[in-house]
Structures are given as structure tokens and as C-alpha cells.
């Protein structure tokens, strides 16, 4: 790729650490996110260890829906990273289209999640039913909020990158999206598979 594109990608300021400021901020942001989700996972793992009887509740989660959502998120991560590649190559319209695909992945994910929630609540598995379900709704709910937040950011960036504005942000929102993906990679076995 030519130098002018890269200069555009990197924004105005470069620095001693060799990371553009926006990306550095994103890493620090993710560090604080790690401590939120990681803290929750720590608590859940410890309590789950203490209470093997939660297994009888855990079998009622819908494995197929969780697996489908894993596929959706992994695929949306793929389109996010391809969007990043396209933005680096200066193909902004393609980057915007791929970000749109990732956004669509987020929509599908939320639809599946909504189906799961309504199905489970109808079956009587409400948050206050037991500790396992409290944790289930807490962790997946917090994760879903992060999905929504990522989608909002992605929509804004999609509109601007179409016009070639701030293409470096495609990478930043991608990093965030991959993090949300990784959280799901751990939530899926924790809440669905392990029983």
C-alpha cells in the first residue's frame, strides 16, 4: 500500500511506543473490560466449583442456540478483520460493506439471544429462580450490552469510513469486537457446555 494511505490510517500523532494513540487507548480500555468480565468469571467459576448441584440447572440452557451464536460471532469477527484489511488497503467502500456484515452478525446474535431469553423465561427459568440463572442472565446480559455498544460504534464508523474518514477506526472497533467475541468464547462453555 502507498505511504499516503498509511499516514491517513495512523492519524496525526505517532509516538515513542510505536502504537498509535487510538490503539493504545483501546488496549487500556480492554484491560479494564478484562477486569470486569474476568472478575465475573472468577466469581462464577469459584461458586460453580463449590456448588456442583448447579449442573441440574445448567442442562436447561439451549446448547444449539449458544453454538449458533458462537458461529455468528466468530463469522462476524472474520468480517471485522477483513474490513480492517480492506481499510488498510485503502478500499473504504469494501471496508464499510464488511463492517455492515459484522453489524448484521450482531443483529442475528441479539435475535438468537432474545429467542433464548423468551423461551427460558416462559419455561420458568427467570433470573431469580436460582443462583445459576442469576449468573446466566447477568453474564449474558452484560455481554449483550457490549454487543449493542459495539454495534452502535460500528454503525457510526461504517458511515464515516464509506467517505474515507478516519479509516484507522475500523481496526479499533474490530479489536473491541474480537474482545467481545473472546468473552463469548468463554461464556459458551461456562454457561452452556459444562454440566
Amino acid at each position: 500500500m502507498d505511504d499516503s494511505t498509511v499516514a491517513k490510517l495512523e492519524g496525526a500523532n505517532l509516538e515513542d511506543l510505536g502504537i498509535p494513540t487510538g490503539r493504545l487507548a483501546m488496549w487500556w480500555f480492554l484491560a479494564s473490560e478484562i477486569s470486569i468480565f474476568g472478575g465475573l468469571v472468577c466469581i462464577f467459576v469459584l461458586l460453580r466449583w463449590r456448588h456442583p448441584e448447579w449442573a441440574s440447572e445448567a442442562v436447561h440452557t439451549i446448547n444449539a442456540a449458544g453454538a449458533l451464536n458462537t458461529v455468528v460471532l466468530l463469522t462476524s469477527s472474520l468480517s471485522a478483520v477483513l474490513a480492517h484489511q480492506a481499510a488498510e488497503d485503502g478500499r473504504y467502500r469494501k471496508a464499510a460493506r464488511l463492517l455492515g456484515a459484522t453489524f448484521g452478525g450482531g443483529v442475528i446474535f441479539l435475535c438468537v439471544k432474545a429467542y433464548e431469553y423468551s423461551h427460558e423465561i416462559h419455561a420458568g427459568f427467570v433470573p431469580a429462580r436460582s443462583m445459576f440463572w442469576s449468573f446466566y442472565y447477568l453474564m449474558t446480559g452484560l455481554h449483550a450490552l457490549h454487543v449493542i455498544g459495539g454495534m452502535v460504534a460500528m454503525f457510526v464508523i461504517m458511515l464515516s469510513v464509506r467517505k474515507g474518514l478516519n479509516p484507522q477506526r475500523v481496526e479499533y472497533v474490530g479489536i473491541y469486537w474480537h474482545f467481545v467475541d473472546i468473552v463469548w468464547i468463554f461464556l459458551f462453555p461456562l454457561l452452556y457446555l459444562a454440566s
Binding site: A7, E10, L14, E88
Partner: peptide, 28 residues
């Protein structure tokens, strides 16, 4: 320094993303 950066910080090596995605799906 921004000229330097154009050589280093900007470009990532792009591996075969589709292959990695396939491995991920298989693992799942």
C-alpha cells in the same frame, strides 16, 4: 517519526483469516 511509522506501525501482516476462522469453527 510519522514517516517511520508508515513503514512499521501501520501495516499488519495479514494471515489467511479464512483458514483461522475454519479452525475456530471446527474447534467449536
Amino acid at each position: 517519526s510519522s514517516e517511520q511509522a508508515s513503514a512499521t506501525a501501520g501495516a499488519h501482516a495479514h494471515p489467511n483469516y479464512i483458514a483461522i476462522w475454519s479452525i475456530l469453527l471446527f474447534a467449536m
